[in-house]
Amino acid sequence: MTEADQRYMVQQRKMAAGEKDAPVYAKTMRSKEGVFEGVSFIRNREKASVMTLAEAQEAVAWAKKKKPLAVLYETSIIPAE
């Protein structure tokens, strides 16, 4: 039995989210060579990056390290549908 190739997305929500606060999703930035350069967060789920678990973990770590307002958000890895 082979393991399914599961894909993930990175989602952020404000910790004190109200009903109007929609989650945002990560769109990864890569160089022409495919090297990870960073993450931007967008509202459109359809345009967000779908990635492997390792890539999603890298995106979360980068966001927590480089984004100054990351402490205001709950960042989570969710399965892509």
Score class of each variant (00 low, 15 high):
Met1Asn: 09
Tyr8Ala: 03
Tyr8His: 04
Met9Tyr: 08
Met9His: 10
Met9Leu: 12
Val10Lys: 04
Gln11Leu: 09
Gln11Ser: 13
Arg13Leu: 08
Arg13Pro: 01
Lys14Ser: 14
Met15Asn: 15
Ala17Arg: 09
Gly18His: 11
Glu19Lys: 01
Lys20Arg: 08
Asp21Leu: 09
Ala22Gly: 14
Pro23Leu: 02
Tyr25Cys: 06
Tyr25His: 10
Ala26Asn: 01
Lys27Ser: 14
Thr28Tyr: 06
Met29Ala: 15
Met29Asp: 14
Met29Val: 14
Lys32Asp: 08
Glu33His: 09
Phe36Ala: 06
Phe36Gln: 03
Gly38Gln: 02
Gly38Lys: 00
Val39Glu: 05
Val39Asp: 05
Ile42Trp: 06
Arg43His: 10
Asn44Thr: 03
Arg45Val: 02
Lys47Ser: 15
Ala48Lys: 07
Ala48Ile: 01
Ala48Cys: 08
Thr52Gln: 03
Ala54Leu: 05
Glu55Ile: 03
Glu58Gln: 10
Glu58Trp: 02
Glu58Phe: 02
Ala59Met: 01
Ala61Glu: 13
Ala61Gly: 10
Lys64Trp: 00
Lys65Leu: 13
Lys65Ile: 08
Lys67Met: 15
Pro68Tyr: 05
Leu69Asp: 15
Leu69His: 13
Val71Gly: 13
Leu72Val: 08
Tyr73Trp: 15
Glu74Tyr: 13
Thr75Trp: 12
Thr75Ile: 15
Ser76Asn: 08
Ser76Phe: 00
Ile78His: 02
Ala80Pro: 03
Ala80Met: 04
Glu81Cys: 09
